Simulated scan of single mutants.
Amino acid sequence: MSWSVYIITNKPNGVLYIGETKQLKRRIYQHINKAHPGTFSARYNLDKLVYVEHHKSEGDAKKRELQLKKWNRAWKIELIEKSNPEWKDLYQNL
């Protein structure tokens, strides 16, 4: 199983959350169902997976997550729109 870096949102051009996990489908399910009340993603109702990239190791995924978190908003939106221009929810395709 590979590590994943992902971006979730509540709507196109909405609030963005970047995370990393080894169990992507499970983690997104947790976001959708607000399994951890009070978290940033629960507070802003972030339940749409709009971007995913896979990495071979936890270290690579963590490094990429931290890199993306430092990017400005315009760069993050451009990254999403390159692979998902319609901001479709990718969760159903996992």
Rank of each mutant, 00 (worst) to 15 (best):
K70E: 10
R64V: 01
N84F: 11
M1K: 09
E81A: 10
P85R: 07
K88L: 14
K82W: 12
E65T: 00
K34N: 13
P37N: 03
L94Y: 05
L79E: 09
V52C: 06
R73F: 07
S83L: 10
H55N: 01
L90W: 09
G14P: 12
E20D: 12
I77C: 12
K62N: 03
V5R: 01
L66T: 04
S2M: 08
K22G: 10
H54Y: 10
D60A: 01
E53I: 02
K82V: 10
N33S: 10
E58G: 11
Q30W: 09
N84L: 11
G38L: 05
A35L: 11
Y29F: 13
G14Q: 12
Q92L: 14
W71N: 12
L79Y: 06
A35P: 00
K22W: 03
R26L: 08
K82T: 14
R26F: 06
A61E: 02
K48Y: 05
I18W: 01
S57D: 03
W3G: 00
G14A: 10
K63C: 02
E78G: 11
N33I: 04
K62S: 05
D60K: 02
I7D: 05
L66H: 08
K82D: 14
W3P: 01
P85F: 08
L79V: 02
N33Y: 14
E58W: 14
P37A: 01
N84G: 08
Y17P: 07
K48L: 13
W87T: 09
Q30D: 15
N72V: 03
K25V: 13
Y91H: 14
I18R: 03
V52K: 08
E86R: 12
L68Q: 02
L46K: 07
F40G: 02
G19L: 00
V50H: 07
Q67N: 09
L24D: 01
H36M: 09
N93V: 06
H36L: 14
A42L: 04
K25S: 13
I28P: 10
S2I: 00
P85L: 07
V52Y: 05
I77W: 14
H31G: 09
A74Q: 15
K25G: 08
K34G: 13
R26D: 04
M1R: 04
L68W: 04
